[in-house]
Each structure stands twice: as structure tokens, then as C-alpha cells.
């Protein structure tokens, strides 16, 4: 789901950077007081887990690949802002050091996966937790993959409309919404199943670990 360089227009990534910069600043401001020596090891380990999960590509039917991200686990365990900043850090590292995901597309990737993924996971979990915690965790994981995929499909699918040359040829990503929506949503709906299980198992393990440390 990492959008590479050259796929999105400046009309898209410049406003995305402006919005993302505001959210990064707000996130850091909010977390400054919350980060302490007890929280940091959890954040570090979950961020590293998210990074590893994003690097492990799973082959899918149709000759494509996708990956889990651990974003919902970060969001339900540590909150939206922490998850957003952790995922942004992972995406920035991948783009700057390893060429995975574009530098121009970093803000769009961070907004889709980091912010929308975390926010949707956290809201789903908070709303459904009173009904059934396991189902709430699973659905949080599923939503954290599918909603960002929808956002990325919209951003990519709108590029032919946003930026064209004089002859009407798309200057950036060439496929429209009719192509991008099924192409992104179908594989990620499948990946979301795995992400949901990972969120459920991971959260249970972390809760047990925290309880053991508390006693």
C-alpha cells in the first residue's frame, strides 16, 4: 500500500504534507507529557514489529503482494497519536533509507495508514469493546487495513482527473477509480482478516505482559 514516487501529483502531495505536518506537530505536542520510561519499551517494540510486518510481503492471488502493518495493535494499545507518530516514523525510514514508498508520497501514506488506520481502529475498538472484546479487536485490525486501502485507492484513482497533459493523458498514476477501488480493496479485505487476528492475539499478549509487570 506504500505509494511510490511519481504516482501522485503535487496538487495532491503538497496539501497532504501541509495537513500531515500539522498532525505531526499536534501528535508530538500531545505525547510530550505522556511518554515515560514505562511506556517507551512498549512503543519501541510495537514500532519495530510494525516495521518488520510491513517488510514481509505476503503473496496474494492475482500475482500481487500485500503486508500486515500492526497499526491497529499500536492504536488500541497506545492510542491514536502514538500509533500515528510510530507509523509515520516507520514510513519515513522506509522511504528515506530503503526506497520503500516515495518521499513525495510520504504524507499521503502517513495520513492513510498512520492516521486513518489508527483512528479507525481505535474508534472501532472503543465502540465494540463493551459488546465483545475479541470481535472488537479483530474488527479494529480489519478496518485499519481496509479503510487506508480505500483512501489510497481514492487518491490514486483520482490522479488521472487531477493531473493531465494538454492531450488529456494522465501525468501521474494512469488508472481511474473503476480500476483502483477493486484492485486495492479486494486484496486488503483479505489481508485485514490476518491483521484482525494479529491485533487480537497481540493485544491479549500485551495485556497479560502488562498485568505481570504491574504485580
Amino acid at each position: 500500500m506504500h505509494i511510490p514516487d511519481g504516482f501522485i501529483s503535487p496538487q495532491t502531495y503538497l496539501p497532504a504534507y501541509a495537513l500531515c505536518a500539522g498532525l505531526w506537530w499536534m501528535g508530538m505536542h500531545r505525547l510530550r507529557a505522556r511518554l515515560d520510561e514505562a511506556t517507551l519499551p512498549y512503543v519501541a517494540v510495537l514500532t519495530a514489529l510494525s516495521f518488520v510486518l510491513m517488510m514481509v510481503a505476503l503473496p496474494l492471488p492475482g500475482g500481487t503482494t500485500a503486508h500486515a502493518a500492526g497499526i491497529a495493535l499500536l492504536a488500541v494499545s497506545l492510542g491514536v497519536w502514538m500509533a500515528f507518530l510510530a507509523v509515520s516514523m516507520v514510513l519515513a525510514m522506509q522511504a528515506l533509507l530503503f526506497g520503500d514508498g516515495g518521499i513525495t508520497a510520504l504524507a499521503v501514506n502517513a495520513l492513510a495508514m498512520g492516521f486513518l488506520g489508527s483512528l479507525s481502529a481505535r474508534i472501532t475498538w472503543r465502540l465494540l469493546r463493551p459488546l465483545h472484546e475479541g470481535a472488537a479487536l479483530w474488527l479494529a485490525g480489519w478496518v485499519s487495513v481496509v479503510l487506508p486501502a480505500l483512501a489510497v485507492a481514492l487518491v490514486l484513482g483520482l490522479q488521472p482527473v487531477i493531473a493531465q497533459d494538454a492531450a488529456g493523458k494522465p501525468l501521474f498514476f494512469p488508472f481511474g477509480l473503476r480500476v483502483t477501488l477493486p484492485a486495492l480493496l479486494m486484496p486488503h479485505a483479505l489481508v485485514g482478516v490476518g491483521e484482525g487476528i494479529l491485533t487480537w492475539l497481540g493485544y491479549r499478549y500485551l495485556t497479560r505482559l502488562r498485568q505481570r509487570h504491574a504485580t
Binding site: 511518554l35 520510561e37 517507551l40 519499551p41 512503543v43 519501541a44 514500532t47 519495530a48 516495521f51 518488520v52 517488510m55 516514523m89 516507520v90 525510514m93 522506509q94 533509507l97 530503503f98 520503500d100
Partner: peptide
């Protein structure tokens, strides 16, 4: 190598933050 370097970097950065 990217996975090893990436994990080391993340843990190192959080170590510094600590």
C-alpha cells in the same frame, strides 16, 4: 539487511529518546 538495519535503528532511536 533492511529488516535488521531498520529494527536496530528504531530500537536505537527509542533508546536515545529514553
Amino acid at each position: 539487511a533492511r529488516i535488521v538495519v531498520g529494527v536496530a535503528l528504531i530500537l536505537g532511536l527509542f533508546g536515545l529518546l529514553n
